[in-house]
């Protein structure tokens, strides 16, 4: 279990993190979302020992993450970084060695990861000669080459074309299947929704929502019910207990059910007006959840 526990961090008068806590289970893919400047990168840098937390701790299997643990963490910084003049193969071997592999296994791992990420032909090329997309692959290979126990990736998908996104996603899912907890930050919420078992939404220095996407949906403010009853008169649902009408337009009604609201009663009432063409709970998208969470902290905090 990778735990981020009550992280606080201020740069001068700018309080960036105010108690960030979340946990990632082995084999879980955790999407880390938040607006620009919310503190995602700072959180990850604290985990990697590149910034010092004012308070709080990051733990791996109950043990504070220190140098020894970090050597088993694959990391991809937001600002990509490789030696521009070093060859791909040598570079990967070097990073594998820095993470504790011996010379021969490091060279083997470098060769096999270059191959797996489609860089086999480019192993002898200097990194600066590669396209940006290929440099990104080398960066990912550098994070994966030591077969890490934990992956922490800052915006790994930014700047990738759809094919690149798919192959990176596949590589990450494979790591999850291996039992590695993967944390990655992203602005591409559709991607997070598609890939992640769990998400955390960071706003104003705190995790304002976290859990599985399904869990977030069910705990979202007042569940919404969409009823399409073409013949219903306006205001047909207004009198029902525990029901608030969010919008109503020519028989297409969105209702919010609070405590005491009963969806079966709503259906029965709707049927009395005539034909019911559509009756379903409305699933909020992650984008909507994110927007809600980021705009109104108090109501969502759970």
């Amino acid at each position: 279990m990778l735990e981020f526990d009550g992280l606080y961090k201020a740069y001068g008068s700018n309080q960036v993190l105010e108690g960030v806590s979340f946990a990632v289970a082995p084999g879980q893919m955790f999407g880390f979302c938040g607006s620009n400047g919310a503190g995602k990168t700072t959180t990850m840098r604290i985990a990697m020992g590149l910034a010092l937390a004012d308070a709080g701790q990051v733990r791996w299997n109950g043990r504070p993450v220190d140098e020894a643990v970090r050597r088993r963490v694959g990391y991809m910084p937001e600002e990509r970084g490789l030696y521009p003049k070093m060859r791909v193969g040598e570079q990967l071997t070097y990073f594998a060695r820095l993470h504790g592999l011996d010379a021969a296994p490091a060279a083997r791992a470098a060769a096999s990861w270059a191959e797996r990420l489609g860089l086999g032909e480019r192993r002898g090329d200097r990194v600066e000669k590669l396209s940006l997309g290929n440099q990104q692959r080398v960066q990912l290979a550098a994070a994966l080459v030591s077969e890490p126990d934990v992956l922490i990736l800052d915006e790994p998908f930014s700047g990738l074309d759809p094919v690149g996104v798919d192959s990176l996603a596949e590589a990450l899912l494979e790591q999850c299947r291996r039992g590695v907890p993967v944390v990655f930050s992203s602005h591409q919420l559709d991607l997070v929704e598609r890939l992640c078992d769990a998400v955390g939404i960071l706003a104003r220095g705190k995790i304002v929502a976290s859990g599985t996407v399904a869990g977030l949906r069910s705990s979202a403010v007042g569940r919404q019910l969409r009823v399409v009853a073409p013949d219903a008169p306006p205001g047909w649902a207004a009198g029902l207990p525990g029901v608030r009408v969010v919008s109503e337009q020519r028989g297409d009604t969105v209702l919010e059910l609070g405590p005491g609201g009963d969806d079966q009663q709503v259906l029965a009432t709707a049927l009395t007006t005539g034909r019911v063409a559509h009756f379903a709970w409305r699933e909020p998208t992650l984008v909507e959840l994110f927007r809600d969470a980021v705009t109104d902290v108090r109501e969502v905090a759970a």
């Binding site: 020992g49 590149l50 970090r70 963490v73 990391y75 490789l82 030696y83 990073f95 550098a142």
Partner: peptide, 17 residues
């Protein structure tokens, strides 16, 4: 400067002091 300008230093400092 090369390590700083290429930002590889961040990757290096994740494994050493």
């Amino acid at each position: 400067v090369e390590e700083k300008s290429s930002r590889v230093v961040e990757l290096l400092l994740a494994t050493m002091r």
